[in-house]
Computed example of a mutant assay.
Amino acid sequence: MKLVYNVAAALVKSRGFHSSAFARWLGTEMCKELKTKVLRLLPPTSNGPTLLDETDGAEILRCTVKALKESHVVAVPTDTIYGLACLAQNSEAIRKTYDTKGRNGQKPLAICVGEIQDIYKYCKVKVKRELLCDLLPGPVTLVFERSEELNTDLNPFTSLVGVRIPDHPFMRQLCQMCGEPLALTSANISSQTSTVEVHEFQELWPKLAVVVDGGPIGGQSRLGSTVVDLSIPGKYRIIRPGCALSPTVDVLEHKYGLSEHSGEK
């Protein structure tokens, strides 16, 4: 499997394959071996995130959406670490996601949406819209009370749900094309280190329909998003410090006047 991937990369470099042709070729080869498609996005620019052009991006998006709509689990790049994603409204896919990484069934999955307005459909928001716009898209997960629209099989043990809008064009477009939220968790075996390159979770590839390779991610801190509970009006609680703690707290306290609470309601 690793040999196929490395040979493909060498061919692209030496023969000048167009990346869409590379995506098709590599996908075909991986399907022969694993029935897993490994698709590479265009590399990041020097001053911005991974780009999606009209040909390659659309092709990879279509392939990933198709896999998601067929109840499969896929691996995707975000603005923090690599993630495993499935359709949040699909109970079978949620079960597969837990099985794929051996995750404790009492640990929640976050949801990922493409736009601020999507949050209001699946969450009961008790903060100003401006606060959402200040923190999202970005490396932050905001926790709210869940709405009745969200699949009851997703985190049935809690009335809360974390929601993300990663600052990553592929992820935002993927959510928009799916037309519903993705359930999202880190792409690693449960309790192991978070991953910032696709080869780091290669042992999971056989369980995935698509692996979207966006290259090495960001500063490679591996901390994941900062998780903040905003379910109590006027209060916030840090559930996970993550990679954006200081700027997040600064926005919550100094701009919006929220105070930290202990977690006890």
Rank of each mutant, 00 (worst) to 15 (best):
K2Y: 12
V4C: 15
N6K: 11
V7F: 10
A8H: 14
V12E: 13
S14H: 15
G16M: 15
S19V: 15
R24I: 13
K35H: 12
T36C: 10
R40Y: 10
L41Y: 03
T50G: 07
T50F: 06
L51D: 02
C63E: 15
A67F: 01
A67Q: 00
K69A: 00
A75L: 01
V76D: 07
T78M: 08
T78Y: 15
G83D: 08
L87W: 09
E92R: 15
I94W: 02
D99V: 12
G102E: 00
R103F: 01
I116C: 07
D118V: 04
V125L: 10
V127D: 06
R129K: 11
R129P: 05
E130I: 08
C133A: 15
D134Y: 04
P139K: 15
S147V: 05
S147L: 13
L154C: 03
N155E: 10
N155W: 08
S159K: 14
L160K: 13
V161H: 06
H168K: 02
M171N: 01
Q176D: 10
P181D: 02
S190H: 11
S191K: 07
T193E: 10
F201I: 14
Q202E: 12
Q202R: 13
E203V: 00
D213Q: 05
D213F: 12
G215A: 03
G218V: 00
R222I: 03
R222E: 04
S225Y: 00
T226Q: 11
V227S: 03
V228C: 06
R237D: 01
R240V: 04
P241M: 04
H254Y: 02
G257C: 06
